[in-house]
Design a protein around this nucleic acid. Structure first.
Length: 751
DNA sequence: GGACTAATCCCGG
DNA sequence: CCGGGATTAGTCC
C-alpha cells in the first residue's frame, strides 16, 4: 500500500472533491489528513496547527495522547527521502525535521517504523510465495496421483485397458452393436455437416488410405478403435470414418453429440455473419453493429445453456479485407503455431487438446478439434481469460470457408458442462472467409462472449464493453496487421531503410528476436497460472498501483540468469491513443521519459518495416553517451492497428545483435523487455465527454539479482516501483497533460 | 477484530 | 547513545 502514497502530494485540491474515486485502501494518509481537518480540530490539532504547538513547547507537558498523523505533505517528503536513503544520519534527520516542522525524534521514529514495516511486508510476501509454491506442489501431487489412478494411453489419449480384460464373444458383440449404432448416427451427421453424401467421402477416404497419404497408424487408435475396426472391416464398411470419432480423453463421450454441437455452432456463425440479417443493427453513431439480443434468443436455441446471471455479454461483428488467400487463412487458424503467432498480445498461449476429427481430402475441411487458450488484454487490471473450446472448420463452397469456436469445458451425458470457475465463455464465434481476386480475402468476424465483468477493473470495462477489448475488431485488426507484415516480408522491394542494407536472413533473425522480446513482455503483464511468473502482491490491483511479479531463471537460453522483477501499471491518459503512440516511438522525445537512455540523443541505426504504417517496425536504437565505451543499443518493436498499439524495447548486447543482424541465431541473446501497451478508451457518445483518452499500460522487467537463489529485497522493489511511477509522470509532463490526480475528471464507466 | 501507525519500552553493542 | 525488536495506544474500516 505504500506504493501510491506519493500520489497525494501537491494535488489536494484535485482530490478533495474526488474522494470516492480514490481507493481509500491505497492512500490512507491523504484521506486521514482531510478527516482531521474536518472533524478533529477541536484541540488545535488540525493538520497544520499541530506541529507549531510542539515547536513552541506548549502541548508538551500534558503528555499529549491526542492521536494524530503526520500530514500528507510530511509523509510524502519522508517517503521520498526514504526511497533515496532509508538510513538518514543525524544531520539529514535534523534537516528533515527542520523542513517538515517535526521533532527530530519524530523523524527518527518515523524512519524506524518505516523500516520495520517494510521488513514485515517483505516477510509477508515471502510467506505468500512459499504458500503459493506449496499449493502448486500439492496440486501437482494430486494431479499425479490422479494420473496414476486413471492412466491414459500416451499415443492416443484413450483409457488404458488392463490386458486381462476378458475378450469374450458376448462383450465383443454388444460392443459391436453399440458401435454400429454410433456409426449410423455419425454417418447421418456427417452427411449433414459436410453437405455431401457419405459415399463420396467414403470413397475419397478409401482412396487416400490406399495411397497411404493418410496417417492412420494403429497407434492412433486405442483399444476401442481396434474393436471398431474389427467391426467395420467385418461389416464391409469403410473403417476410416471411425477415425474421425477418436475418443476424448475424458471417459466415454458421445462423439456424435460433439459433432452436433459443432454443426449447430457453424450454422449459428453463418447466420450471424450473413450480410442481410436482422440480427444486427447499426449503433446510434453508426460506427459499429449491435446485436439484437431478443432476436438472437428467438433465432437460436442456447448451445451451451443460458447466460449465468452475473455475466454480461459482448457480441461484436466486423468485416475487413485481408491480403492473404482463403486457403492460407484457413491454415492460419487451424495450425496451432500459426494461430498463436498471428495474435500476439491477444493469445497468450494455446494448445490443441484433442483432434476429434481430422480434415477430409487432406484439407482442413471438416476438422474438429478441442482446444484451450489464454486470451489477454495487456493490463494487470484485466484478468487473463482461460477458455476451452471446440474449433470446427468447414469449406462451404469453393473459396468460402468458415472456422467456428464454441466454449466447452467437458461433455457429460450428452450435455455441455462448463466449469463453474471459468470467468468467460465463448458462444459461437469465429470467422467466415470469402476469397477475393488478387489474393485478398474478405473476412467477417463474429465474437460473442459472456463474461464476469466484476473481475475487470472499472477503468477497463468500457474497453471490453465496446468490443474493442476481446471483440471482433481487435481480432480482425490483429489479423490484418499480421498479413501486412507478411506482405512486407515477402515484398521483393527492399523494405530496409538503413543504408547499410541487410540480408533476408538478417531480417528474419531480427524479427524472430523482436518477436521473442514482445512475447516476453506480454507474459510479464498478465498473470497466468501457467507462466513462470510469481505474483508478489496478491489480489486485485487498482489504477496506477503497480503489479509486481517475479521469476527465477537458471541456465535458460535467451534470458539473463537470476531474479527478474516485472512491474506493470495501467493508467488512463487524457490524450488520444495515436498521439501517445507517436510520442512514445519518436526518438526525439525519448529522453523525455526513458530513464534508461540517460537523456542522451538517440539514433535509429536499423529500421525494418513490417507494413505500410510507419508505426509497424522493428528497429535498433543507439543511445549516445559521453564515452563510446558506454554506448548502448536498444532493440525496439512497435506496432499499431485499429484496436491497440504496442511499444516494446530492450537493451541488447552489441556483439550479439551484430551477429543477429547478419542472420545469426538469436536464441542466446538475453533480453529484458520493457514497454507500453495502448488501448483506446472508447468514449460512449452519450456521455458527451470531449476528452479522447486512452489506456496506457507500462511494464518494466529488471534483473534484481544475478543469483537465482537470492531473495528479493526491499530496495529492488522500491526501485522498480519508483521507475514506473517516474516514467508515467514524465510522460504526463512531456505531453503537457494534467497530473495523475486529475483523473478524477475521468468518468469511470458503469459503476 | 484486524490493519495501520505514532510513540514507548527495552536491550545489545 | 544508537538502532532495532517488541509492544502499546489510538484510530479507522
Amino acid at each position: 500500500m505504500q506504493l501510491t502514497r506519493m500520489e497525494g502530494g501537491g494535488a489536494e485540491g484535485g482530490l478533495i472533491g474526488a474522494g470516492e474515486l480514490v481507493d481509500q485502501h491505497l492512500v490512507p494518509g491523504v484521506l486521514d489528513g482531510f478527516d482531521e481537518s474536518r472533524s478533529g480540530s477541536e484541540n488545535l490539532d488540525a493538520a497544520s496547527g499541530d506541529d507549531q504547538s510542539i515547536m513552541r513547547g506548549e502541548g508538551r507537558a500534558p503528555k499529549r495522547k491526542k492521536y494524530h498523523r503526520h500530514t500528507p505533505q510530511q509523509i510524502q517528503e519522508l517517503e521520498a527521502f526514504y526511497k533515496e536513503c532509508p538510513h538518514p544520519d543525524e544531520k539529514q534527520r535534523l534537516e528533515l525535521s527542520r523542513r517538515l516542522n517535526l521533532e527530530t525524534r519524530q523523524v527518527k521514529f518515523w524512519f524506524q517504523n518505516r523500516r520495520t514495516q517494510m521488513k514485515t511486508q517483505i516477510e509477508r510476501h515471502e510467506n505468500m510465495l512459499l504458500k503459493k509454491e506449496n499449493d502448486k506442489l500439492r496440486f501437482e501431487q494430486a494431479a499425479m496421483k490422479n494420473a496414476l489412478r486413471n492412466p491414459l494411453c500416451t499415443s492416443c489419449g484413450g483409457p488404458v485397458v488392463s490386458p486381462e480384460l476378458p475378450f469374450d464373444e458376448q462383450t465383443l458383440k454388444s460392443e459391436n452393436a453399440r458401435l454400429r449404432d454410433e456409426l449410423t448416427r455419425i454417418c447421418l451427421l456427417t452427411e449433414k455437416f459436410l453437405g455431401r453424401p457419405i459415399s463420396s467421402i467414403a470413397s475419397s477416404l478409401t482412396q487416400r488410405s490406399t495411397t497411404s497419404t493418410l496417417d492412420f497408424s494403429l497407434g492412433n487408435i486405442g483399444f476401442q478403435g481396434l474393436n471398431s475396426m474389427d467391426h467395420a472391416l467385418s461389416s464391409g464398411l469403410d473403417m476410416s470414418l471411425l477415425g474421425s470419432a477418436v475418443s476424448l480423453p475424458e471417459a466415454p463421450v458421445d462423439k456424435s453429440f460433439i459433432v452436433q454441437l459443432a454443426v449447430t455452432a457453424m450454422d449459428e456463425l453463418m447466420k450471424m455473419a450473413a450480410v442481410n440479417t436482422s440480427l444486427w443493427s447499426s449503433s446510434s453513431d453508426g460506427v459499429k453493429e449491435v446485436l439484437n439480443f431478443e432476436e438472437y434468443l428467438a433465432t437460436f436455441p442456447p448451445t451451451i445453456g443460458p447466460k449465468p446471471n452475473n455475466f454480461v455479454l459482448d457480441a461484436s461483428r466486423d468485416t475487413g479485407l485481408v491480403c492473404l488467400n482463403s486457403l492460407a487463412l484457413v491454415e492460419t487458424f487451424m495450425d496451432l503455431n500459426q494461430w498463436v503467432s498471428v495474435f500476439p498480445s491477444l493469445v497468450a498461449r494455446a494448445s490443441t487438446t484433442t483432434v476429434i476429427s481430422p480434415g477430409l481430402d487432406g484439407s482442413w475441411n471438416g476438422t474438429l478439434q478441442l482446444m484451450q487458450a489464454e486470451l489477454q488484454v495487456l493490463s494487470p487490471l484485466v484478468p487473463l481469460r482461460q477458455v476451452k473450446f471446440l474449433r470446427f472448420c468447414k469449406k462451404h463452397e469453393e473459396g468460402k470457408w468458415a472456422v467456428v469456436d464454441l466454449s466447452i469445458d467437458a461433455v457429460h451425458e450428452g450435455s455441455v458442462a462448463l466449469s463453474p470457475f471459468s470467468l468467460c465463455r465463448r458462444l459461437p464465434s469465429g470467422c467466415v472467409i470469402q476469397e477475393m481476386p488478387d489474393g485478398f480475402s474478405k473476412v467477417t468476424w463474429i465474437e460473442h462472449t459472456q463474461y464476469d465483468e466484476n473481475v475487470v477493473h472499472p477503468l477497463y470495462r468500457r474497453l471490453l464493453g465496446s468490443g474493442m477489448g476481446f471483440g471482433a475488431k481487435r481480432w480482425l485488426a490483429s489479423l490484418q496487421r499480421h498479413c501486412e507484415g507478411l506482405a512486407a516480408l515477402m515484398a521483393s522491394g527492399e523494405p530496409v531503410e538503413n543504408p547499410s542494407g541487410m540480408t533476408a536472413s538478417g531480417r528474419k533473425s531480427m524479427f524472430k528476436l523482436a518477436r521473442r522480446m514482445s512475447d516476453n513482455f506480454c507474459s510479464g503483464v498478465c498473470a497466468s497460472l501457467m507462466s513462470k511468473w510469481e505474483r508478489l502482491y496478491p489480489g486485485n490491483v487498482g489504477e496506477e498501483s503497480v503489479q509486481l511479479m517475479s521469476r527465477k531463471t537458471v541456465d535458460s537460453p535467451g534470458e539473463p540468469s537470476g531474479i527478474v522483477l516485472s512491474a506493470t501499471a495501467s493508467v488512463w491518459m487524457p490524450v488520444a491513443r495515436q498521439r501517445l503512440f507517436d510520442f512514445l516511438r519518436d526518438k526525439r522525445y525519448r529522453s523525455d521519459w526513458d530513464i534508461l537512455s540517460n537523456g542522451g540523443p538517440i539514433q535509429e541505426v536499423v529500421r525494418i518495416s513490417k507494413g505500410p504504417d510507419p508505426g509497424n517496425c522493428v528497429s535498433l536504437l543507439r543511445c549516445d553517451t559521453a564515452s563510446p565505451s558506454q554506448e548502448m543499443l536498444i532493440l525496439q518493436e512497435t506496432w499499431t492497428d485499429a484496436a491497440s498499439s504496442l511499444i516494446v524495447y530492450a537493451p541488447v548486447d552489441t556483439p550479439a545483435i551484430q551477429s543477429v543482424l547478419g542472420g545469426g541465431d538469436s536464441t542466446y541473446v538475453a533480453l529484458l523487455p520493457s514497454g507500453f501497451a495502448l488501448y483506446p478508451d472508447p468514449d460512449p457518445a452519450q456521455t458527451g465527454n470531449p476528452a479522447a483518452g486512452c489506456l496506457l499500460t507500462a511494464g518494466f522487467q529488471i534483473l534484481v539479482n544475478e543469483l537465482p537463489t537470492a531473495k528479493l529485497t526491499v530496495d529492488s522493489v522500491t526501485t522498480v516501483e519508483h521507475l514506473i511511477h517516474c516514467t508515467i509522470e514524465k510522460i504526463h509532463q512531456a505531453l503537457d497533460c494534467a497530473a495523475p490526480a486529475s483523473r478524477s475528471q475521468n468518468p469511470v464507466p458503469h459503476e
